[in-house]
């Protein structure tokens, strides 16, 4: 049984595309067949995050409008042969596809893949509604900031109104040190406010910037804390019972001393 999962957030810039690319790669690392779909028509991004921008011939709108077959538009990932990208059109807008088109498209993808991950555009309009139309489940990405959590709350309500079940939450760009100083909302603060199940916590990690610069996903880099967090989330998504780890920021003095002796604390459990 294949699963179609939409990654959305309401607010822009909280890490939907990065999450989609990394979860897609992490699921493919488990040997699963995965398609990632860029549903942000007109603002194509997932291709550059994955470093596949030079290989695009056809896009999602070409498939929907019958200019090519689905297989012609799918781009194989550089590292994982079982991971494919369906890019968004760059020169069209969200009105180029309908919710019914997206349902038909996801059904076609179900026949070929174990997982279909859809990267939703920001906002609550047609683009978002198209992105969740064919989904079985929804993941919501937020950061521990007032504006992002407010938008996440709005999106949770909409996802439930569209009868997509109970979405699960990814808290992205958490800075554990700031949380411990009382300068950033904690995981519990966010969960209490949103009353939603947590699927994972991704720490703020500068390596995301450098890996994105190169068009590589962070899960390929075993030293990336964000990458490790995404690997864990993918395992949870696939049904494994993995306790949630909060991978810590820059090592503190104690960790550095332990590190000098070759002992590397992995992070603290929630």
């Amino acid at each position: 049984m294949s699963r179609v999962i939409t990654i959305t957030s309401g607010k822009g810039g909280v890490g939907k595309t990065t999450s989609t690319a990394n979860l897609g790669a992490a699921l493919a690392m488990q040997g699963l067949k995965v398609a990632v779909v860029d549903a942000d028509i007109g603002l194509r991004n997932l291709d550059v995050v994955m470093g596949l921008e030079n290989r695009i011939v056809y896009d999602l709108v070409d498939v929907v409008e019958g200019r090519c077959r689905l297989r012609q538009a799918l781009i194989k990932d550089k590292h994982f042969p079982d991971l494919c990208l369906l890019p968004a059109a760059q020169t069209r807008d969200k009105d180029a596809v309908t919710a019914d088109d997206m349902i038909a498209l996801t059904n076609q993808l179900r026949a070929e893949f174990d997982y279909v991950l859809i990267d939703s555009p920001a906002g609550i309009e047609a683009g978002f509604r198209n992105a969740i139309a064919g989904a079985d489940e929804v993941l919501i990405v937020t950061t521990p900031e007032v504006a992002a959590v407010r938008d996440a709350d709005r999106i949770i309500g909409l996802v439930e109104a569209f009868e997509k079940g109970h979405p699960r939450l990814i808290i992205n760009r958490l800075k554990p040190r700031m949380v411990s100083r009382g300068e950033m909302m904690s995981i519990d603060d966010v969960l209490q406010i949103l009353a939603i199940d947590l699927i994972g916590v991704v720490p703020d990690d500068e390596q995301i910037v450098t890996s994105t610069n190169r068009g590589e996903v962070a899960v390929l880099d075993r030293s990336s804390r964000a990458g490790r967090a995404f690997v864990e989330i993918a395992r949870r998504l696939a049904g494994e019972d993995v306790p949630i780890t909060v991978f810590d920021d820059n090592p503190g003095l104690l960790n550095r001393i332990f590190g000098a002796f070759g002992i590397r604390p992995r992070g603290s459990e929630r």
């Binding site: 007032v146 407010r150 709350d153 009382g182 950033m184």
Partner: peptide, 24 residues
């Protein structure tokens, strides 16, 4: 924080959110 001069900004964020959400 120790002398209670300023409220922790995380608490301020949480309280503001709670107010905003209930109004939303």
């Amino acid at each position: 924080t120790l002398f209670g001069k300023r409220e922790r900004s995380s608490d301020i964020a949480r309280d503001r959110l709670l107010t905003v959400l209930v109004h939303d």
